[in-house]
Design a protein around this nucleic acid. Structure first.
Lengths: 163, 163
DNA sequence: TCCATGGAATTGACGTGTCAATCGGCAGGT
DNA sequence: ACCTGCCGATTGACACGTCAATTCCATGGA
């Protein structure tokens, strides 16, 4: 099949040691980064990244409420994941769920005052953490490169969907 | 306090809209990437990334065994996390635990033949997935930049430890 | 009318991760 | 000998995610 390669061995399929080292560095570092940001968010506002994503979406929604499936699509979660998460958030009083009048079997998620407060108080320190831990760590060129790398990876992941 | 300061001042603490967009792209993309790699690993060899990390460390260890605390340090996990994970892996027959002769209260983790097999069969497809999903997605310069970004982020995280 | 078919959402089982106890043994000091 | 403290490891409680059922209801044939 794919035998026409510049490598002296036929179709080299494995990453080199250097490539592998970069992979491990990259993955471990981004994991440490998200973990730090998440720890800060938790410490500053008792919210998890998931909580924050849900509250952000609801804050920006019309009437501070959203159909459950629309919410899932908006933040890119599976519906089951969202359902579990909403259950936990509802127990803490951050959101409420109610039957949707227009759609049978539909559920509407709405932001409670408690949730709105929590989100408002979380935003500033969270954005500051992103700046301190991510933006400030990189030169402007590195930041630009990070955006391009993300775009390239995403495009590549996209193409491989059907492969 | 720092209230009446317009945007252009050096005291700005929040990321710009562009910086924030890059942050979100970057984080979401790396998460999608790790999730894809993990899904492949699972499909190809019924191992999780955690399983793979443990098996890799044990495969390279003297006598295919390692003190539990040394293992935790080697792969950078909290000991409690490792303990839970080893329990699950032991149930599946991938590893075994035994009392350590030299150290009181010490536990030794050792690779079973089943575990060694699983690791051997997992390695090739896993490395291929890394190449396909990560290395192949980037130009050589982007790959180099990814390594530098990881280094910069890690260095920055390190300095903030004591802050 | 009755059934199956499908969409929206939830639920259960289970793997995974963190944090705070806890356990068990071995100091060191008195 | 006794108490106290540490150290290695485990455990329990809980949050989080995924996958495979399952529930509820509406609707379109037979």
């Amino acid at each position: 099949m794919t035998s026409a390669t510049p490598e002296r061995r036929r179709g080299r399929q494995l990453p080199t040691a250097d490539e592998l080292r970069i992979w491990r560095d990259f993955i471990e570092t981004t994991e440490a980064l998200t973990s730090q940001v998440s720890t800060r968010l938790q410490a500053d506002s008792a919210l998890s990244p998931g909580d924050y994503a849900v509250l952000l979406a609801l804050s920006e929604a019309q009437g501070r409420k959203m159909r459950s499936s629309a919410l899932a699509a908006h933040i890119g979660w599976e519906r089951s994941r969202l359902s579990h998460h909403l259950g936990r958030m509802e127990r803490r009083g951050l959101i409420r769920r109610q039957e949707c009048q227009t759609v049978p079997r539909g559920s509407e998620v709405l932001l409670t005052p408690t949730g709105a407060d929590a989100f408002r108080n979380a935003t500033f320190p969270h954005l500051r953490a992103i700046r301190e831990l991510f933006v400030d760590a990189l030169t402007p060129e590195q930041l630009r490169a990070a955006g391009e790398i993300a775009a390239a990876l995403r495009a590549h992941l996209g193409t491989r969907r059907e492969d």
